[in-house]
Amino acid sequence: MLYFPYFRGRQYDLLALKNIAQQHVLPANIIPIIEPVRDIRALPQTVAAFIDHDQPVVVIANPTVSDYALTQQKLHDWRPYQDNPNLIVGHVLTPTLIPDSLTAPAGHRTLLIARQYDELKAAHHAGWLAASDYLLVPPEARIRQLLNRPTVSLFDHAWFPEHDRSYADIVDGFFSDDWTLADFNNYVGFSDYTIGGGHYSEHGYPAKAVTLHLTYFRGKQLRIHRFVSTDRDDFRHPKEKFFQAVAKLAAWLPQQPAVTQTPAAQQLAAYHEQQHFPGLGVVKRLSLEHHLQLMAQYFKENFPVD
């Protein structure tokens, strides 16, 4: 079983991945995907951390969100590392994709992401798909009927409240059990956008509440718990709202199994005792690190690498 957690290359996403690489907690069958969105130093530093610790990572060569792909002169380029076999070059299937780019040198792997059925069907009939080692596709019946090769399902499990709703409406809920259906649907693995979701916004959106997101397992089901600040009336006082939310987390975490009490989750809970506000970017980083630490332990126990 393979897991490809999908990240957009924002600053704190990359810092979470860099820390995880340095901790060397990921088994070989958990391979993060980075779609670059900004020309920042953290991008090559994160790729270097995976290379230096002999762990595989995917970087999308033709990112389709933000204007990163349009920047001709990259100040912080990841491509100097592409000769290392642990760097898997990924591509998003688009009408402008050149088939030759899907072919990798001997000993290197490639990954192809197909988000649209029509484009996938055209590439299938043209014979392009055989060149990629991993093919990520939406979990749709018509796609499974089209292809006769093992694939990886890609699905966005994150939920974002709309209009007058908030995370306080659903503080606990189902997140994923994609691995339980993988064999049945002939998938060799699964991919998702973790807790960050697949939607990309260059600047983000302000929120009246501060919400901390932690994934956890109940049996074979991955769930998500949301710790929402009590104050949700306006956009002010994020520090005070963080303390309201983290107090709920600090009360909840000790009641959970040891596997849920990851180092990242414990660090988040410690901010309640310390009464320290690290900033929402650090909170996001630790929530992502927790998810990867949790999934790493689950995979080591249930899908060990030979």
Rank of each mutant, 00 (worst) to 15 (best):
K239W: 05
G107L: 12
I31Q: 05
F190H: 11
T46M: 03
P139H: 06
E240Y: 10
D77F: 03
F235M: 15
D183R: 11
Q261V: 06
A61C: 12
D133I: 00
W159I: 05
R142P: 14
L97F: 11
H290C: 04
F190D: 10
R232M: 09
F227Y: 04
H24P: 09
V58Q: 12
A264F: 03
G281L: 01
T260Q: 03
H108Q: 15
A126K: 07
L43F: 08
I88K: 04
V65Q: 11
R285I: 00
H203S: 14
R38K: 12
Y205T: 13
Y193E: 12
L129S: 10
A245F: 09
P263K: 00
K74D: 13
F303L: 02
Y134H: 13
T96H: 14
H276Q: 04
H203Y: 13
P63I: 01
Y187N: 07
W179G: 06
Y200R: 01
P254N: 05
I113V: 15
A168K: 06
A49M: 09
V228M: 07
H272Y: 07
A168F: 02
P63M: 04
D169T: 04
Q45M: 14
S66A: 10
K241S: 13
L154K: 00
D192C: 04
Y68C: 07
F155W: 12
F235Q: 13
A247V: 02
G107W: 07
E140H: 11
I51N: 14
V305H: 01
S153N: 06
H53W: 12
D67Y: 07
K241T: 12
N302I: 01
L135M: 09
I195C: 06
T151K: 05
D183N: 13
H124W: 10
A207M: 07
A42T: 08
D164F: 06
V259C: 05
Q82H: 13
P44E: 03
Q244G: 11
V37F: 04
